[in-house]
């Protein structure tokens, strides 16, 4: 009896040890290491395969998206490289490496240039701005309420503070809501080597424009295997076959 229990225990322990080993081999950290080894030895396809195998479980992992962008860049697929860098940037907008690689990948794309105002407007995160606007809201409403309840406290300093915090609140709330709205738009990236933009959702329509891989576009409509995209900088919209562009927001 005792011998039987001992055997069962040994089998159970062996099973646990095997499971732990398998788990260690497939842990995100070890997969990252495997992919890095493949990347270092110029086996970019293998590295990409490993990173893509982690996407389902590691969604929202900016480092994973960044590394995947690097493998696509090395494979010469600029469209997908920019797509993954942009996704990483959405999660970690102030990560220096992500921004550097993204700007390098976009360097040769005409029409993707951002002017200084675009950069300034896009710098603060929407949530940060909205939290700042909340604090400012508390400041001016609290001060105003106090002066309403206790009119004796009302002074020029109070009124100036209310006016300043109110003005800043308007700016922060407007800016934050604009950022939130802009982020929520269906932004997409052209992942095909060159997108041929047609005037209608069919091969029968003529090509009105071409756009390079990696260009950020807006998806306006999807119909019968075709996607209506808008090129905001160029003021152009037209149809491309489905799969030419990929949405930035994944989930």
């Amino acid at each position: 009896m005792n011998r039987k229990i001992g055997r069962i225990l040994i089998v159970l322990m062996a099973a646990l040890a095997f499971q732990a080993t398998v788990r260690a081999q497939t842990s995100p950290a070890s997969l990252f290491e495997d992919a890095a080894k493949a990347y270092q030895s110029s086996q970019y396809l293998k590295a990409r395969e490993i990173y893509e195998s982690m996407l389902t479980e590691r969604r929202g992992d900016a480092a994973l998206y960044y590394n995947l962008g690097n493998t696509y860049f090395r494979l010469g697929d600029r469209g997908h490289a920019i797509l993954w860098y942009e996704r990483a940037s959405m999660l970690e907008p102030h990560d220096n490496d992500i921004q550097y690689n993204l700007s390098l990948a976009k360097a040769d794309i005409k029409g993707a240039e951002e002017d200084i105002w675009d950069k300034i407007l896009a710098y603060p995160e929407a949530h940060g701005l909205l939290w700042i606007s909340t604090v400012l809201l508390w400041m001016w409403t609290g001060t105003l309420s106090l002066t309403w309840i206790r009119p004796r406290l009302s002074s020029r300093r109070f009124k100036r503070g209310i006016a300043i915090s109110f003005a800043l609140w308007i700016v922060a709330a407007g800016w934050g809501n604009w950022r939130l709205w802009n982020e929520s738009r269906p932004w997409s990236i052209i992942v095909a080597p060159e997108a041929q933009i047609k005037s209608g959702p069919s091969d029968d329509f003529p090509v009105g424009a071409t756009a390079p891989a990696g260009l950020r576009v807006l998806v306006l409509e999807e119909r019968d295997g075709w996607t209506l995209v808008g090129l905001t900088n160029a003021g152009i919209k037209g149809w491309v076959p489905k799969g030419t562009v990929e949405r930035l927001e994944m989930f």
């Binding site: 990252f32 590691r58 929202g60 900016a62 690097n70 860049f73 550097y100 690689n101 390098l104």
Partner: peptide
């Protein structure tokens, strides 16, 4: 020679793309 920067060595904490919970609190 301008080249892309190297890989991130380890995974980073996952974050949702849209932080609806935050917006509710806000």
């Amino acid at each position: 020679k301008e080249d892309i920067r190297y890989l991130k060595p380890a995974p980073s904490p996952a974050r949702p793309f849209n932080q609806k919970l935050d917006l509710l609190a806000l």
